[in-house]
Design a binder for these strands. Structure first.
Lengths: 157, 157
DNA sequence: CCGGTTTCCGTTACCATATAACGTGCGGCA
DNA sequence: TGCCGCACGTTATATGGTAACGGAAACCGG
């Protein structure tokens, strides 16, 4: 799947250029690592891998890059896992000030194989928006993470 | 609101007795602290307060109590904050093996005042269940946390 | 009441996640 | 040319969470 990674990197490059954001070499490298993981991956796991090519990398190195990628909507944080994963749909939604872009999305996380499927379900988003409206709450971003068994693992056992 | 805390403690006591679970003095004390906080509160904040009456308390002391309270459905974890809050509706749903009870609930977390309102919205739960069904995912538990401004803070500014 | 078993919790040590604070170099721009 | 702001290195530290072991107390079948 190296081809898919390369493609995503080029799309990210284009999106950043369009917005005047600078996808530096470091940020690009971290994004590549997140893409290559294919699953939610912890900051320190990324750090270990980053160190293969960058001797002096430290926690702030990776966290700053992750913050940038989050702001640009290129990755998401999976709160239940304290881990990060590439956005499945990074193109064409605007970045968002103040951490964590707003494009509605939901994760279905398999407890067996570790995969996290991202979807963008309008009726979930609508139900949340309606509930918020009802209590006078003004939403700025939502975390929706469902844990369970993916289709493949449910069949297997 | 000490009265409300006392009432919740007695309800918790009753629920545990009913299920054959032991709400020991330590667990009761931790539950009291969570209730008194009234907002999501971190494990180490609880630990500090616990130490007022219990000199030797250490992280495992508070985490074990929190695990118990989670299993009994008396509190929830707020993933976005790595914090814990009393369940707004602790009565009458059965406890749940394997950490984190399943009773569907959602949090609306105010970024200004820090309050977290818990609701149990059936249409959000239904939308999630339907999306899961569509992709063949077998859900075991869901985290729904909306960040934004509560009604009071939205008015204030 | 006894002895085995389980549960609870103290204690120590440690790992994992995340951020603060400060310095330096570089590129853009008046 | 001098200033400014951003990106990043570097060190230190805050915050969140567990593993592992042992002793004491509660429970239970006899």
């Amino acid at each position: 799947m190296a081809a898919a990674t390369e493609h995503a990197l080029e799309a990210a490059e284009a999106a950043c250029t369009l917005r005047g954001a600078r996808l530096t070499e470091l940020r690009r490298e971290v994004l590549r690592l997140v893409l290559e993981a294919g699953q939610p991956v912890g900051a320190y796991a990324l750090l270990d891998r980053l160190r293969a090519g960058r001797a002096g990398a430290a926690p702030p190195t990776v966290y700053r890059a992750l913050d940038f990628l989050l702001e640009q909507g290129l990755i998401h944080k999976v709160e239940r896992l304290n881990a990060f994963i590439a956005c499945a749909d990074a193109h064409d939604h605007a970045p968002h000030a103040g951490h964590g872009h707003a494009h509605p999305h939901q994760f279905f996380i398999c407890g067996r194989c570790g995969d996290a499927a991202e979807i963008a379900d309008a009726s979930i988003a609508a139900a949340i928006a309606e509930a918020a409206r009802r209590i006078g709450f003004r939403p700025r971003g939502a975390t929706v993470e469902v844990e369970g068994l993916c289709a493949a693992c449910a069949e297997a056992g």
